[in-house]
Computed example of a mutant assay.
Amino acid sequence: MVKRLKLKWLISSGFAITVAIAVASFVANSTNLQTQVITAPGALPEGISAWTVQTGLEIGGRKAVATNGWTPEATLQGSEVSVQSPLGLFQRNWRSLLRFHLAGADDGLFPVEPDGEYAIDVLLGGGRSHVELFFAEYSEDRELLSVVPLSSWEMQGAPREFGMRFKVSPFTRWIEPRIVVDGTFSMRVESLTLTAIDGIHQVRMN
């Protein structure tokens, strides 16, 4: 009896995942259900050559069992961005990836010392959503090594400031700050500062 129940659960779970993936693919590929990205014209923040957004639908919430992949990167203008998930649905599953590129650095990546210690400070203005802060580690030849989570928090409409120290791996030569936001949101990046503890590398967005 237990084996039969377990088999039924596995079958139903597998069916649910299959259906969820099919729904994700339909939504992402439908011309009528595309994410709307709005970026306000204006000067780019100081020290940043570009910042981009990609969107994707994850199945299973923040502990996703499947991802329908990210859309191609869209370059943002100014320091504000608004994203509208399709029909206002999938608020916990539709995610936006923000990537920040450093002016004057190859590929926009921050140069770091292997096993070095750094500090990141972020000030976000307004918005209501779940926000996660990461940094991506790259090797000397700019191959992606890993994406490391730093922290997450809920935006409740008021500006939110966050800062912490972290260490990179012994194999890391470049890093890239990333922010992931859930669902529909509007956000202004007031500032983002990355500093080596010895004070060598610093960039500020104003």
Rank of each mutant, 00 (worst) to 15 (best):
T52L: 10
T52W: 01
V53K: 08
T55R: 09
T55H: 11
T55L: 05
T55Y: 06
G56H: 02
G56T: 12
E58D: 12
G60R: 10
G61C: 09
R62V: 02
R62S: 13
K63E: 05
K63R: 09
A64H: 11
A64W: 11
A66M: 08
T67M: 08
N68R: 12
N68A: 13
W70G: 11
W70M: 11
E73A: 15
A74W: 05
A74G: 01
T75C: 07
T75G: 08
T75M: 05
L76D: 12
L76K: 10
G78I: 11
G78L: 05
S79R: 15
Q84I: 04
Q84M: 10
Q84K: 14
Q84H: 06
S85I: 02
S85R: 02
L87F: 10
L87V: 09
L87N: 01
G88A: 08
G88Q: 01
L89S: 05
F90P: 03
Q91Y: 00
Q91T: 02
R92H: 04
R92G: 02
N93I: 04
N93Q: 05
W94V: 05
S96K: 12
L98W: 08
L98V: 11
F100Q: 09
F100L: 15
H101Q: 12
A103M: 10
A103N: 09
A105D: 15
A105E: 15
D106H: 11
D107E: 11
G108I: 13
G108F: 15
L109F: 13
V112C: 14
V112L: 07
V112S: 06
V112K: 05
P114D: 07
G116K: 10
G116D: 03
E117A: 12
Y118C: 06
Y118D: 13
I120Y: 07
D121A: 15
L123D: 14
G125F: 08
G126F: 10
R128Q: 03
R128W: 00
R128G: 00
H130Y: 04
H130V: 03
V131R: 02
F134A: 11
F135R: 01
F135I: 11
E137R: 07
E137F: 02
S139P: 00
E140A: 13
R142N: 00
E143R: 14
E143A: 10
L144I: 12
L144R: 11
L145N: 03
L145K: 15
P149I: 13
P149A: 06
P149E: 01
P149V: 09
S151T: 15
W153S: 06
W153M: 08
W153G: 00
E154V: 13
G157S: 05
G157E: 01
P159D: 01
P159E: 04
E161Y: 13
E161M: 06
F162Q: 09
G163W: 03
R165C: 07
R165L: 08
K167F: 03
S169C: 07
F171R: 09
F171A: 05
F171Q: 11
F171Y: 06
T172D: 04
T172W: 02
R173W: 14
R173N: 15
W174A: 07
E176I: 06
P177E: 04
P177R: 14
V180W: 03
V181E: 00
G183L: 00
F185G: 04
